[in-house]
Design a protein around this nucleic acid. Structure first.
Length: 492
RNA sequence: CGGGAUGUAGCGUAGCCCGGUUAUCGCGCCUGGUUUGGGACCAGGAGGUCGCAAGUUCGAAUCUUGCCAUCCCGACCA
């Protein structure tokens, strides 16, 4: 009983932390606000990254890499963007240390080595990238530019939470340049769709696609599109954003191109990103009091085989059987581990792999082999059944597919149950306090009202859903006329 | 960054108020053996900058100050 988890009902935050730490995804580090992503967590990220990368390339994008440091003068060029991030920037002011004469064995910042111009550690890369694009774009023939980069960024957050909000995190950021507004908007929407497809089909987390209100919009964007997911505690989580940047960065960095009519025009831009925060979404969408629940498609380990043996002789028999099953599964492209280590007994292994969220566990002992069966347990439903070895690998493959669908459907049902309409202020507050989840309500469209609602309830407008139903109504707070409902929630 | 709590072996902890032999216990770890169908048992053993740094003192895990980190609540956060 070395790894007891806090139950969700007891302390949701602690439950989440326990899963991350005890599940082996990440660890705290010696640096404030920064975490170590451990091999198991990084393997998960690699699977996510590889799939996303494929999807980006399938839509015509290429990868590149831009610097970590952004000179302050470039950073501040697009004013709204700079203002939006100013309060959470790390800044490099010096480039050298020296031994501290007054304190032997210690180092101090060398005051002689002050930088002429401070370097901002990127909280996002629009500035450095648009400064670069300026040199790459002269004519419409140079467009579009469809670049993505996998990188780390730093946002100096006051309060951090593993995966959900850390000072440094890993992400990808796409930055595209287009000749027309229509094309840029189409790109923004296309990438939102890519994100939604990825999160729903691979991470099995249902999302709502929408547009952010002006208050919640990315600093420097004309429009911010987003996917919003719902966690088991009823709080919403922004899982990805795609921004239509208009000509804001083109104007700030003077990026113009000659069109077919030989006239100079400013370039249209987009940017879009998802981060390791998605791992937090995955954890909170599927996991239970026994531990993590990994969606098979991106699980670092899809199947684990645990032998149950008595004595070396039976072990050899089981090893042979298990290895042949493992080879068969591997040849089908399934990520499988045979845990024949002798330092843990089966019961311990069962609990451990449940904690780690491995979708399918196969246990086999002599008794099973004699009967030509294996005990197969699935993590999502905790069902165990004895299944014939004949065609077992195919059975398992189908089971993985079924688990993927099942956990998505389960999360979808939960999400749908937790979207509630509120028509009065009292109703609105009551739902937020007693049920949480998304609240669909009329809003008068002003930032002031949104701000007041946030002050009074801590709920924000998560998004205005795409293809939202238009209906006349009155604002939940002010009673002013409204043309559509928007989704409110308390959010991470 | 404000309020609160915490920091003693990998993890969880006793000791701290009231300073004084060799820092307590459990889990885990190592060795050997018996075991193995839901977190095994016996025996032996290893492992400690008591978060870090100053200070008070003959003597500091214990008292004082500063710093660092983590958690919770706030403020902040596309």
């Amino acid at each position: 009983m070395s790894k007891e988890l806090t139950a969700r009902a007891t302390d949701y935050s602690q439950w989440y932390n326990d899963l991350v730490i005890k599940g082996g995804l990440a660890d705290y580090s010696a640096v404030r606000g920064c975490m170590v992503i451990k091999p198991y967590g990084y393997a998960l990220w690699e699977n996510m990254r590889d799939q996303l990368d494929k999807m980006f390339k399938d839509t015509g994008h290429v990868n590149a890499y831009f610097p970590l440091f952004v000179p302050k003068s470039l950073f501040e060029a697009e004013e709204k963007n700079a203002e939006g991030f100013a309060k959470e920037c790390a800044i490099v002011t010096h480039y050298r240390l020296k031994t501290d004469e007054a304190n032997k064995g210690k180092l101090m910042v060398d005051p002689e080595a002050k930088l002429e111009e401070e370097l901002i550690i990127r909280p996002t890369s629009e500035a450095i990238i648009w400064n670069t694009y300026k040199g790459w774009i002269q004519s419409y023939r140079d467009l579009p530019i469809l670049i993505n980069q996998w990188a780390n960024v730093v946002r100096w957050e006051m309060r951090t939470r593993l995966f959900l909000r850390t000072a440094e995190f890993l992400w990808q950021e796409g930055h595209t340049a287009h000749a027309t507004k229509e094309e840029a908007i189409a790109e923004t929407v296309q990438m939102l769709d890519v994100y939604a497809d990825f999160v729903e089909q691979y991470m099995a987390v249902p999302v709502i696609k929408g547009v952010k209100s002006a208050n919640e919009r990315f600093a420097g964007a004309e429009d911010t599109y987003c996917i919003e997911a719902l966690m088991q505690d009823g709080k919403a989580l922004q899982a990805g954003t795609s921004h239509f940047l208009g000509q804001n960065f083109a104007k700030a960095f003077n990026v113009q191109f000659l069109n077919k009519e030989n006239k100079l025009e400013y370039v249209w831009a987009t940017s879009w990103g998802v981060s390791t925060r998605l791992i937090g979404a995955l954890i909170m969408a599927h996991s239970d009091d026994q531990g993590l629940v990994m969606p098979p498609k991106i699980a670092p380990m899809q199947v684990v085989i645990v032998p149950i043996y008595k004595g070396e002789e039976s072990k050899a028999t089981i090893d042979a059987k298990a290895n042949s099953l493992m080879q068969e599964l591997k040849s089908m492209g399934i990520r499988v581990k045979y845990d024949n280590s002798d330092h843990a007994r089966p019961g311990w292994k069962f609990a451990e792999y449940e904690l780690k969220g491995v979708p399918v566990r196969v246990a086999m002992g002599l008794r099973d082999i004699e009967n030509n069966v294996a005990e197969v347990a699935r993590r999502d439903t905790k069902e165990k059944q004895s299944l014939s070895f004949d065609g077992l690998s195919t059975t398992i493959k189908n089971m993985l597919d079924d688990i993927q669908v099942n956990i998505y459907n389960k999360a979808l049902a939960f999400r749908n149950e937790n979207i509630r309409e509120a028509n009065t202020w009292d109703e609105f507050v009551q739902i937020l306090d007693e049920k949480a989840g998304f609240v669909s309500a009329h809003w008068d469209g002003t930032g002031e009202t949104e701000e007041k609602i946030k002050e009074q309830t801590k709920a924000t407008i998560r998004c205005i859903p795409l293809n939202n139903k238009q209906e006349t109504g009155t604002c939940i707070l002010t009673g002013k006329p409204s043309t559509q409902r928007v989704l409110f929630a308390r959010a991470y």
